[in-house]
Design a protein around this nucleic acid. Structure first.
Length: 490
RNA sequence: CGGGAUGUAGCGCAGCCUGGUAGCGCGUUCGCUUGGGGUGCGAAAGGUCGUGAGUUCAAAUCUCGCCAUCCCGACCA
C-alpha cells in the first residue's frame, strides 16, 4: 500500500475511488458493474441497516421477503413502470446448462428455455402487488406496512462503486392503505425517517422535497426525496419515498371492501434507500487523509494504540489500557485495542485515519509516568493530552461532539455552496462552479429539459421548506411562484 | 450502442517505434535495525507478456481476428 491519497481538489473521482479501495470498504468484482463489499464497508452498512430497521419497526413496519425473480408479464402490467425499467433489466431465458458437445466447458441447454422469461428484480412493486392481491379483501386487512432488505439489479451502462452499481443492496418498503390520505401520510412519514437518519446518523444535512414529473419514479404519482450536497458541489439523491396512488392496485386488481361496503382499489406507497448511502457518507465528510466517519456509524469508534519498545513496556501499557478499554465498552462504545506487533505505531495512526476511526487514544511510557493519554480526533486532526483518570467519560462526550461537529461542517459547506440566482447568465456560470442553485422555474417539462440540455443541471427537487415568492423563470422569463433546487447530480 | 484508449509479477508501470536472456517501484517472505506520525539496510520469492491465428531462424515487440477493462457521449437510485 502506497502512501498518500489523491487530493480532492485535484481529482475528486480518483480520490473517491482510492478511499473506497484503501479504506477497505469495497472493490470491483470480476463481474462487470458489481462490487464486493468488504468487511469494513459492510460493517458500516450493517450499522445503517440497524438504525433504519429500528426506525421502521418503531413506526409499525415489519420485514418480509419476496422473490428475486419477476415474471416478465408482471413487469408489463403497470405501463409507465414497465417503460421506466425495461432498458435496464437482466433477463433469465434458460434454466439449465449442459456439457459443451464441441469440447470443454458448459453451454446453455437450448432445450431448457423458459416458457416465460424471468426478470431479475430491479424493484419489487409488481411481485409484491401480485401477492397483496391475495392478502387484501377488506378494509380490516389494511394497512399493510412491509419492508424488505434485498438486492436488486439494474443493468447500468456506466457504473461507479456504491453510487451506481449493476447490483446493489437496499431496503424497499411497500405499503397498502385504505385511503389516499393515509398513503400520502405514510409517504411523508418515511421521508421524515430518511431525513432524520441522514442528519442524526450520517451527520449529513439534506433538503426534503418533491421531484418534478420527469424525475419521478416510474409508476408513481409523486416522488419525495432527500437530496444531499457532496464536497465537489454535485448533488446526490439519497433516498426516495413514493406515493403510488392506485396505479399498482389497478394493474394487479387489488380491491377491498371499504366500511361503506363498496369495492375500492388500495392505495400504495414504496420507498427505499440503498448502498448508495455509503457513497454519500464518503463524499460528504472525508478528506485528503481518508475516510471521516460519524461516530454513530463507525464500526470502530475508538482505537487505542500502544507506543512501546519491547514486551515489558507493552505489558505495562496493556495493564493501564485494560480498565479504560472496559470502561468504554461498558458505555456501549465500540473500542479496539491494537497491540498488534506486526505494525508500528506510526503506520497504525495513518491506517486508522484512512479508515475514519473517530477517536484515537495513544498511550506510551511517557503517558504512564504522567498519568496521561493522547487523544486524537479524526474530524479535526487535532491531538491533546488528557488525564488518564476519567478518560472514558471524556471520550463518550467527545464522540457526541464529533458527531455534531461533522454535521455542522457539512451544513456550513452546504450553506456556503447554495446560491440564489435570478438571471440565465448567472445560472449558467454557477452551474459550472457547482453547488445547489435556488432559481425560479416556470413549471414546464420543456423548460426543465432545455435547462438540462444546455447546462447538465437538473431540478433536484421542489423543496418543502422554501417560501412562496413570486418571480420569473430563470430560463423562460415566465411567472413562477417558488424557487426550486437545481444542481448537477450523480 | 457510437468515439477514444489500454491489456506485461498481488498493485502501479517501463520495455514495443528499430524482433534476439522479461525489467522497475510498491507490496510480499526472511534477517538485522527501528519503535510518540506510513523506520532503515540487506537478501529472496513471484510472470502462459489478455487470447487465437499469421509473418519470421526467432514475437511482449510486426499483421489480422476475438475477448476484457477504462475514459468520453446517449441512459440512469
Amino acid at each position: 500500500m502506497s502512501k498518500g491519497l489523491p487530493k480532492r481538489s485535484e481529482n475528486y473521482s480518483e480520490w473517491y475511488n482510492e478511499i473506497v479501495k484503501r479504506a477497505d470498504l469495497a472493490e470491483n468484482s470480476a463481474v462487470r458493474g458489481c462490487m464486493v463489499i468488504k468487511p469494513y464497508g459492510y460493517a458500516i452498512w450493517e450499522k445503517m441497516q440497524r438504525a433504519l430497521d429500528d426506525m421502521f419497526k418503531a413506526s409499525g413496519h415489519v420485514n418480509a421477503y419476496f422473490p428475486l425473480f419477476v415474471p416478465k408479464s408482471f413487469l408489463e402490467k403497470e405501463e409507465e413502470h414497465a417503460e421506466g425499467f425495461a432498458k435496464e433489466c437482466a433477463v433469465i431465458t434458460h434454466y439449465r446448462l449442459k456439457a459443451n458437445p464441441d469440447g470443454k466447458g458448459l453451454v446453455v441447454d437450448p432445450n431448457a428455455k423458459l416458457e416465460e422469461e424471468l426478470i431479475v428484480r430491479p424493484t419489487s412493486e409488481t411481485v409484491i402487488w401480485n401477492t397483496y392481491k391475495g392478502w387484501i379483501q377488506s378494509w380490516r386487512d389494511l394497512p399493510i406496512l412491509i419492508n424488505q432488505w434485498a438486492n436488486v439489479v439494474r443493468w447500468e451502462m456506466r457504473t461507479r462503486i456504491f453510487l451506481r452499481t449493476a447490483e446493489f443492496l437496499w431496503q424497499e418498503g411497500h405499503t397498502a392503505h385504505a385511503t389516499k390520505q393515509e398513503a400520502i401520510e405514510e409517504t411523508n412519514k418515511i421521508l421524515e425517517i430518511y431525513a432524520e437518519f441522514a442528519e442524526k446518523w450520517m451527520s449529513m444535512p439534506v433538503i426534503q422535497g418533491v421531484k418534478t414529473a420527469s424525475e419521478r419514479f416510474a409508476g408513481a404519482e409523486d416522488t419525495l426525496c432527500i437530496e444531499a450536497l457532496m464536497q465537489d458541489g454535485k448533488a446526490l439523491q439519497s433516498g426516495t419515498s413514493h406515493f403510488l396512488g392506485q396505479n399498482f392496485a389497478k394493474s394487479f386488481d387489488v380491491k377491498f371492501t371499504n366500511k361503506e361496503g363498496q369495492l375500492e382499489y388500495a392505495w400504495a406507497t414504496s420507498w427505499g434507500v440503498s448502498t448508495r448511502l455509503m457513497g454519500a457518507l464518503i463524499m460528504a465528510h472525508s478528506d485528503d487523509n481518508g475516510l471521516v466517519l460519524p461516530p454513530k456509524l463507525a464500526p470502530i469508534q475508538v482505537v487505542i494504540v500502544p507506543i512501546y519498545k519491547g514486551e515489558e513496556d507493552l505489558a505495562k501499557i496493556t495493564e493501564a489500557v485494560n480498565p479504560v478499554f472496559e470502561a468504554l465498552k461498558a458505555k456501549g462504545i465500540s473500542v479496539k485495542y491494537d497491540d498488534d506487533d506486526k505494525q508500528r505505531s506510526g503506520w497504525k495512526f495513518a491506517e486508522y485515519e484512512l479508515k475514519g476511526v473517530p477517536v484515537r487514544l495513544g498511550l506510551g511510557m511517557r503517558d504512564l509516568e504522567n498519568g496521561t493519554v493522547e487523544v486524537a480526533r479524526r474530524d479535526t486532526l487535532t491531538k491533546e493530552s488528557k488525564p488518564l483518570a476519567g478518560i472514558a467519560d471524556y471520550v463518550e462526550s467527545l464522540l457526541d461532539e464529533i458527531q455534531e461537529n461533522i454535521y455542522d461542517k457539512a451544513l456550513k459547506f452546504r450553506e456556503e455552496n447554495t446560491f440564489t440566482v435570478d438571471t440565465w447568465d448567472d445560472f449558467k456560470a454557477q452551474v459550472e462552479k457547482g453547488g445547489f442553485i435556488l432559481a425560479h422555474w416556470d413549471g414546464t417539462a420543456e423548460t426543465e429539459e432545455a435547462i438540462k440540455n444546455e447546462t447538465k443541471a437538473t431540478i433536484r427537487c421542489i423543496p418543502f421548506n422554501s417560501a412562496e415568492e413570486a418571480g420569473k423563470c430563470v430560463y423562460s422569463g415566465k411567472d413562477s411562484a417558488k424557487r426550486v433546487v437545481f444542481a448537477k447530480a450523480y
